[in-house]
Simulated scan of single mutants.
Amino acid sequence: NSDGGGTLSLAEKCTYTLTANQDGNGLPEIVQPITIHGNGATIARAANADQFRFFEVGTGGDLKLRHLTLTRGKSSAAFEEGGAINVVAGGRLDLDHTTLHNNSTDDIESDQGGAIYNEGITTIRNSTLSKNSGYDGGAIANEYGKLEIETSKFTGNVSGDYAGAILNEYGTTTIRKSLFDYNYAEDGGAVYSYDGLTEIEKSVFKYNVAEYGGAIYHSADSFHLRESTVAYNTAYYDGGGLYLEDSATIENSKIYGNTATAQQGGGVYISLPGSQEVAIRRTVISGNQAPGNGQTGGGIYIGTGDLVTLTDVKVTDNTSDEPAGGIHNDGTVTTYGKIKIIDNVPTNCTGSTNPVPNCFG
């Protein structure tokens, strides 16, 4: 910092164990452009040390981490957010080939961003975030900031409330070519999007678990899912794969093998306020389940008054306890192009309050 920035190169595959708490951080606040080449090294908080995260990226700070692991960071009660890294509104963080493992916030009952809390600009590539935990955003909480993720893996992260892996709240989050598996939260096993812009492309969501929205819970503002796979996720209540509570676009994707254990919408659960609309295009929704007693909408559940458009969509081999097993429609569905809704159990669409065009049986 005192030299106006610079580059540090760590000893190859060495473990640097930090013991001292410096105002809630293990290292001085980053306020200049600084690059750390880890060369496979690890920075760890000592097991018997006070609680602290590793880095705070302050206003004017631009921190780049390369080929480095951060583990056992734990934010202190006085410096709550970001178990490993806190990025303030005027800061930048860039991770490449970096692992954040087993970091957490001080109090899983209130604090956000088990590994990273971002109000600035954060870019993550070729990295892994695993077994981190926080109250909202088990791995990352993005609030009012810009978050870009590409070719990265989020696995085994846990939230006590929203977003097992990533919370996007009032910010902009873009996710490309990434894998989310075995994450857990009450709402949004992998991702929870609220009052911001969330775009997901060419990514995979598997084996995530939540009470609502096994893989993804979209609550407000803008959400786009493209060329992605949502498979084998589980919600105890509604939305085994996706829980959509505001306008959303789903296209060129596969949603299969998801389960809403006790309620509705094995693949997709839609419940919209006002005149919002969900568009689903060129997407296959198959093999999803809503097996609970009296539950419907194994493939898609559409709530009262909701507007949904389907274009070139296949809804096949989904099951529920009561009709309809394919699409349960209490709203208005408009169809375009080639629609294939077949082989759903106990019915395709029959039993819904309102008919679904081009759906029979």
Rank of each mutant, 00 (worst) to 15 (best):
N157R: 07
T261E: 15
D3I: 03
S75V: 01
S76H: 07
S127T: 12
E29I: 02
L100E: 07
E199I: 10
T123W: 02
E201S: 14
G267C: 11
E322C: 05
L310A: 05
I285V: 15
T304A: 13
D136G: 04
T35A: 14
E186Q: 14
L18I: 02
F360G: 07
E201F: 12
G113V: 06
D50I: 01
A324K: 03
A89D: 15
N293Q: 09
N348L: 08
N1R: 07
G40K: 07
N293G: 02
S352V: 05
E150L: 00
G137C: 09
P291D: 07
E169P: 03
S9C: 01
Y16S: 00
I342A: 12
N168V: 08
R226N: 14
N354F: 12
E56C: 02
G171Y: 03
N39F: 08
L8P: 00
A163Y: 04
Y237L: 15
R72P: 01
D306R: 04
I255Y: 05
T332C: 03
T309I: 02
T316W: 02
K64V: 10
Y237C: 01
T42N: 05
A115H: 09
L68D: 03
G120R: 08
A139Y: 00
D50M: 02
L179N: 09
G160Y: 14
V158S: 15
D94E: 13
E12N: 08
G60R: 06
S271V: 04
T59L: 02
E186C: 00
N252T: 15
T69L: 04
S133D: 11
V87L: 03
T155Y: 02
I302D: 10
G24D: 05
Y236V: 14
I302K: 01
I149L: 12
F55C: 04
A44I: 04
D343C: 00
T198E: 03
Q295D: 00
I327T: 11
G156V: 06
G61P: 06
A11W: 06
G38W: 09
G58P: 08
G83Q: 04
D221Y: 11
